[in-house]
Design a protein around this nucleic acid. Sequence first.
DNA 1: GTCTATATTGAGATAGAC
DNA 2: GTCTATCTCAATATAGAC
Lengths: 204, 204
Amino acid sequence: MPRQAAEATILAAAERVFGQHGFRGTSMNEIAQEAGVPKANIHYYFGTKEELYRSVLEGIMTFWLHDADYWLVPERRACDGFEGYIRAKMMFSRERPDASRIFAYELLQGAGNIHHYLSTTLREHVARRGQTFAVWEEDGQMPRVDPAHLMFAIWSMTQAYADMSAQMNAVIGNAHLLESDFETGLQTILRLVLGFCNDVAGKS
Amino acid sequence: MPRQAAEATILAAAERVFGQHGFRGTSMNEIAQEAGVPKANIHYYFGTKEELYRSVLEGIMTFWLHDADYWLVPERRACDGFEGYIRAKMMFSRERPDASRIFAYELLQGAGNIHHYLSTTLREHVARRGQTFAVWEEDGQMPRVDPAHLMFAIWSMTQAYADMSAQMNAVIGNAHLLESDFETGLQTILRLVLGFCNDVAGKS
DNA sequence: GTCTATATTGAGATAGAC
DNA sequence: GTCTATCTCAATATAGAC
């Protein structure tokens, strides 16, 4: 197998296994079996387990910010922006649940591997959202609110459909979340956030 | 040390260490040092690492349901109920962040150790919230909404202040969350949920 | 570049003295 | 009941043949 294909295969397998068992709960053996390559090859391509894990994390990070830069910009109407953004986040939880879970594990551990990323790139990213929200507030499209905490709320609600899916399955009574569950969740979250941004007249 | 005191000491230490590193990331050695007892004593009192972990989980579970049974009942006004419940959940994230994280780790792992609890006790618990919400909807105090998904939203937003605190710290720029951060978060969540339950006239 | 066989370490668990 | 010393095994990592 050529180098590039092998690395991609291993990274994809690692994302699945890390996403299910976390960093400490995953053995190199398991990743090797999932990828269908000998264990030694993973070390040959990626060095240590931790370096492999960091590579997986980096791939996830690049995905993280795209949606907000597309949707949460002053040129849009507030309601359109929030709806598009929340839809995109729900799609991510549905299509790449393992990536979402790896991120959640990393945060639970204290985020030691991505601290630099969080306190520079993500921090500036949130600051830009703050500028967008300031314009929308000025324009009377949404009430005054702390931008960071509003983002925290949206992230947690949408990522829950990957990170807490085991709990949702048990409560709903299915083996796994269905298309319709994601749709109901989306509508519920939209009700909360759009109700909020439609509510300006009555509040301010 | 008498048996009861030793067990309580070990359980408290285990909650701290499991809450920081998760089940797989925690060694019995670390718990022993945190508790200030020899490792062998932990095995004497609790058997295996997994049995100790389950004991910690059980202690957390009993706490879980109290608040909703107190606040989300038909006798209250919807707004009062939601506000009290959300305040209680935020307090839990602030005062027992390790307990919240252990629960989050367990859900990420697939909830194998608490599946029975989730699909019986918690499921019925959510069904009772559904009855409360139905009364409030009938009474025009809140719009029609899926009860389970509304609970999912509230749980994820409030627990994020324990589970995702590393991310929040980095974005806010502090070493740890302050009293004022919890207050701002609380107000943001209340805005979303109460805006929602005040919004009935304009919707239905 | 690829893989088998192995060195090394760390962790769960327990035997047995006190 | 309490603790030290030790057993056993699983997992990371690498040496070295092909």
